[in-house]
Design a protein around this nucleic acid. Structure first.
Lengths: 369, 369
DNA sequence: CACTTTTTTGCAAGCGTGTGCAAAAGTTTC
DNA sequence: GAAACTTTTGCACACGCTTGCAAAAAAGTG
């Protein structure tokens, strides 16, 4: 086609858009209905209708700005009638804040992560922020892309849930002026807010619970993912057991999921000496271990075998498991994360929080021998 | 050597640029890696460094724009060196597309929803979009706020997962020119892309499986949430049973969760005539029902009682349950949703998709009497 | 009322990008 | 080498908003 034709076509389409917009306005003015049109209502439209300047509209929607009560009313009324919404993209362009917080998470359909993500999005929403969800499953390439997105959208902050995002990511986000929260990720980079659980204390509690139950042959079921928090639990358990002169049999396998627990049951209970107490690094693995122990080896829990897990996910309270486990203080994690994000940047920011994971007693550790 | 000199010059110029920008306080925290500055590198900076106009930079990052290979190279190099990222907020302001897709979901820590959310975010990411997660738990107020956010950020589309977002929401999003996908939400509003499962067919398969197992006293366990898809399963099951002259005992209770299944077990098995087959509207309820039947009533599954669920969540394959259930075709749901979002707007858009949920045979329906 | 102080308001300059337009540069054809 | 095309490039405006600044209006003071 010729460029002349193209040009006139463009002009015509502009004109059409303009006309469409005008018509919408007329309709709005006449009936006060929502525009059934792709183009959004802008502050200009509201200003025109309210008979004030665009600044006045902007100030009306900016908390703490100087507007008289009268004009505010007029603006609000016009905005209501037109169905005006502040365009956060444009606002984020001017202000330093976009209002966007990225949640970087892998395997987010895991019960614990899902619960955390839900709680975080909820808390962020009530704090006036919005959550962007970025998946870091699969290859390193996807992790890279995830970070790129974080920067593309000028996120105010990123919250990294447990998992293993590359260290370079953390660095890059920090350099872009984002605030970063690391949850259960014992990174030693300076700058992020780090939330961790007192895994060592939990391990001590577990050991003493097992001892009180009369157990002596301790085992620890772990994945070989090697996440810092998982390893901290393992080390803590070994150390606590050592204080009582007990050794711990350690088995690691695969990912931190049900099937791995199942597999570890095979390993643990096939040998000559069976452990009588197992600390599972995670509830999912505990379930697998329990099913393996019961189904494949006919063991009774807690009579033959005591088990403790970690996370206290929903399934732990299901009758088939009734797992005694350490509870992740999800509410505290979420509250403190978001509070920190909201905190004044100029003030000295707290660097980390160490939270307590209380033991929830159910039926997988007997009280006495 | 000379390249080393050049490099250090570059660093200095970076620093100068950084200082010229307004945030000075951040530089205090700079530990010498990159300028730890809140303001990002802009296309102008890149243009200046590459010795081209800003348009050239913009065109370099716009697929299909007219740039010579040489300038593209120059620009890319400069961009790389400066750590430039296109600002999607600004881009979204100009183009009609923001690249943002909102996932509106309630109770997203439910296994099925969590899986769907994970799969969706993943698929959206590979399609170059980004997922915003909006929680619609709690009061109607929060639903309202969720919608507001959707509009604030000029999302290209919203995907409503099953649940009960208010009808007014759907309407409002549509009016703002968003594309909308409704998953398992049998809404009759015109405009959105509706993905539903063939619940009726699944119900027929369930009935015939129960009949083949020799069951005659059928029951249906539902929540009283009343989601369209849940009700469709119920109606389908009743209808299919009626074809064989069988009546169905229906029990509804609470939310669509484990505890409700547990409760329904109490109701179903306390009476004089116990059902010998139960279609649970959802796997979670099936687990509750199974635990109740086994633990409180000593029933054996599938000998005394056949059960079928819906969703095929992870837990269904756990040994303690081994639930025969209908599988949600999550992959298909996700692929078709995102494909539809990507589709050409001018072309006639498909209105709906009806997907098949295959029955996954495990151990809760016996093969023969 | 005149003067000072405070509040409100509109103007206009951005924020970082995309893109139509026309000029410039490059390519082909005769 | 000139003419006729095609490709590349820079200018300038637009997107929808915030905000500093100074003028205007309102409020306080004697």
């Amino acid at each position: 086609m010729s460029s002349g034709l193209l040009r006139s076509f463009n002009k015509i389409s502009d004109l059409v858009v303009a006309v469409a917009r005008k018509r919408v306005q007329d309709i709005v003015n006449n009936h006060g209905f929502m525009p059934l049109n792709k183009s959004f209502v802008s502050a200009d439209d509201v200003a025109k209708r309210a008979g004030v300047s665009r600044s006045a509209v902007s100030r009306t929607f900016t908390p703490g700005a100087s507007v008289s009560e009268e004009t505010r009313q007029r603006v609000m009324e016009a905005a209501q009638a037109l169905g005006y919404h502040v365009n956060q993209l444009a606002r984020g362009l001017m202000r330093s804040e976009s209002g966007i917080v990225c949640l970087v998470v892998s395997e987010m359909d895991t019960p614990y992560r899902a619960r955390l993500v839900r709680a975080l999005t909820h808390e962020l929403q009530t704090a006036g922020k919005i959550a962007m969800l970025i998946n870091t499953d699969r290859s390193d390439g996807s992790v890279d892309a995830a970070l790129r997105q974080t920067l593309h959208y000028r996120a105010d902050a990123s919250i990294l849930l447990s998992g293993l995002p590359d260290k370079a990511i953390t660095r890059l986000c920090l350099n872009s002026g984002q605030r970063i929260v690391l949850i259960n990720r014992d990174d030693d980079i300076d700058g992020p807010f780090r939330i961790n659980l007192d895994d060592g204390q939990a391990a001590r509690v577990a050991v003493s619970a097992f001892l009180r139950a009369g157990c002596r042959r301790l085992a620890f079921a772990n994945s070989d993912v090697g996440t810092p928090s998982l390893m901290a639990r393992e080390r803590g358990f070994i150390a606590a057991a050592a204080e009582f002169g007990l050794e711990v049999r350690i088995v690691r396998h695969g990912n931190t999921i049900y099937e791995s627990g199942r597999k570890i049951a095979q390993t643990l209970f096939t040998g000559a000496v069976r452990p009588d107490a197992v600390f599972c690094v995670n509830d999912l693995m505990a379930f697998g271990l329990m099913d393996g122990a019961r189904h494949d080896f006919g063991l009774h829990i807690p009579e033959d075998l005591c088990i403790v897990g970690f996370d206290d996910i929903e399934q732990s309270s299901w009758t088939s498991y009734n797992l005694t486990t350490f509870s992740q203080p999800v509410d505290e994690i979420v509250k403190s994360s978001v509070a920190w994000l909201q905190g004044d940047a100029t003030a000295g920011l707290v660097r980390s929080a160490n939270l307590h994971a209380p033991l929830i007693w159910r039926k997988t550790i007997r009280n006495k021998l």
